[in-house]
Write a protein that binds this DNA or RNA. Structure first.
Length: 479
RNA sequence: CGGGGCGUGGCUCAGUUUGGCUAGAGCACUCGGUUCGGGACUGAGAGGUCGAGCGUUCAAAUCGCUCCGCCCCGACCA
């Protein structure tokens, strides 16, 4: 497991990340190029993410459904931009049951097309609308360069697909789900995000508009952490999703789609992790508390384990997710480092002295070393733990927000801009288009992450073209 | 697909330049003993077609050719 120190983030951020994912036991490499195996500890985190998203989807009227992993190849071609966007990264099945297939099947890279096919069958009348469906599944995109959780050939996600009678409704849905993502990121994952609109060159293939939540990672690069697309009538027209309105006139639907993936796990790692390892936000942590029993001999062992069992039961009653590390084969010191690597928010040590004094040692993962360690009475421990978990959750969000603020700059010239995007975000007035974006990317590796929904108002001078600009955008290097 | 690097026990690597003894080390693993409040110590043990194939040679991890795989950098991306 964890036998030595991680490289520090300053030494080699990429290597820090790679080793952490493996050593925190989140995931492993698969025998298939670019694919990953999500291990139980990582999958439990994903389940907690799923639960928090799913309850929000349900609360906004969506239901889950299952759709096929195979999509007829011809479906992909029906929407022009969509096929252009996805063709290069498709996995295609040409043989089934030993026979060459009449029509090759694409392993779904996303389900807009097969959804379009189905919705066209299901929608006849304005009374059938809206359709509000979400899918929990995995999709495959044959990526050139992969990195665990951030970009793999197969990844797990949810994809919501809705169909509406009007453009206004579709836009409202798109923005509502963007809000759901932002609320989830901020309040569950403790990751501050910027809600914004993607530029044309960054939007989803086939969408009218793409909205995004963008987060700053520990190396100041940006990570697109969730997207919500207003598909307009593009897919409705390609798949003939039509209905009769109140006036008995045929209309095309307006559709949306929105997704958030296991990439969020990468975001959690890179937002909160430190040189000791992971720091799990308490609300999503697989284990919120780990209890390490400490004893020298059999005489001490009994009473200690008895106290541990009692404390565990109290925490479980208080609905705290708690793990007792009763491994006899490794030392307490090893366990401390191991669980710090894995990011458990609170560690409780129970030793002979604690048994005598009815106390425990309680350590907060967000404050390493002595500073985060205190000795607290066993009486009222459950309440103390719940309060501390809330504190940690708040502290993580606060720290990440301060970090983002400290690394977001407002350059006004291209020279300043070039320096700034080496090590942070640039929040700038911008009047350029596709061509300017491409040139800036070429020269600085930075791209427009989004046009934030929250705008200062007024106008300014574009840092690049010198033209008057009416909006500020965020430029950054990204994953 | 272009440029660079690397393939030796589970992992990290030494050995390859200059071919030559039974292919080594550390970590991890198994069994025993002592330990246990910040990554324990010790004794014994198990584990290797040296990425694959062909060739050169008395002799190949080591030299040559071919292939395969992985990593890094670029072009593409939730």
């Amino acid at each position: 497991m964890s036998d030595a120190k991680l490289p520090t983030r300053a030494e080699d951020y990429s290597e820090w990340y790679n080793q952490l994912v493996l050593r925190a036991d989140l995931a492993d490499y698969a025998p298939v190029r670019g694919c990953m195996i999500v291990k139980p500890y990582g999958w439990t985190l994903w389940e907690n993410i799923q639960y928090q998203l799913d309850r929000r989807f349900k609360a906004t009227g969506h239901l889950n459904a299952g759709f096929p992993v195979f999509i007829p190849k011809s479906f992909l071609s029906k929407e022009k931009e969509h096929v252009e966007g996805f063709s290069p990264e498709l996995a295609v099945v040409t043989i089934g049951g030993g026979e060459e297939l009449e029509e090759p099947l694409v392993v779904r890279p996303t389900s807009e097309t097969i959804i379009g096919y189905s919705y066209a069958k299901w929608v006849k009348s304005y009374r059938d609308l809206p359709i509000l469906i979400n899918l929990w599944n995995s999709v495959v995109r044959w990526e050139m360069r992969t990195k665990l959780f951030l970009r793999t050939a197969e990844f797990w996600w949810q994809e919501g697909h809705t169909a509406h009678a009007t453009a206004e409704e579709a836009e409202a849905e798109t923005l509502q789900m963007l809000d759901v993502y932002a609320d989830f990121a901020i309040n569950e994952a403790a990751i501050p995000v910027v809600k914004g609109l993607k530029t044309d060159s960054e939007k989803f293939a086939g969408a009218l508009r793409t909205y995004t939540i963008e987060a700053m990672m520990g190396d100041t690069k940006a990570l697109q952490s969730g997207t919500s697309h207003n598909l307009g009538q593009n897919f409705a027209k390609a798949f003939e999703i039509q209905y009769l309105d109140r006036n008995n006139e045929t209309q095309f639907c307006w559709t949306t789609s929105w997704g958030l993936s296991t990439r969020m796990i990468g975001a959690i790692i890179m937002t909160h992790g430190d040189d000791q390892g992971l720091i799990m936000p308490p609300r999503l942590a697989p284990w919120q508390v780990v209890i390490v029993p400490i004893y020298k001999n059999d005489a001490e062992r009994g009473p200690v384990l008895e106290a541990v069992a009692r404390i565990k039961a109290e925490l479980v009653d208080a609905e705290v997710r708690v793990k007792v590390d009763d491994r006899d084969t490794v030392s307490p010191g090893f366990k401390f480092n191991d669980w710090e690597m894995r990011g458990v928010p609170i560690r409780i040590e129970v030793g002979p002295k604690d048994v005598q004094k009815n106390s425990v040692a309680l350590s907060r993962r967000d404050r390493p070393g002595r500073e985060g360690k205190s000795f607290v009475p066993q009486a009222g421990l459950a309440e103390q733990v719940k309060t501390t978990l809330k504190d940690i959750q708040a502290a993580l969000l606060e720290r990440a927000t301060a970090f983002r603020k400290a690394n977001t700059h407002e350059p006004t010239t291209y020279d300043e801009f070039k320096t700034v995007v080496e090590k942070g975000w640039a929040h700038v007035w911008f009047a350029g288009g596709r061509e300017e974006e491409a040139r800036i990317k070429e020269e600085t590796k930075a791209t427009v992450r989004c046009i934030p929904l929250e705008q200062p108002g007024g106008s300014g001078t574009c840092f690049y073209t010198g033209q008057p600009a009416t909006q500020k955008v965020i430029f950054a290097r990204s994953y």
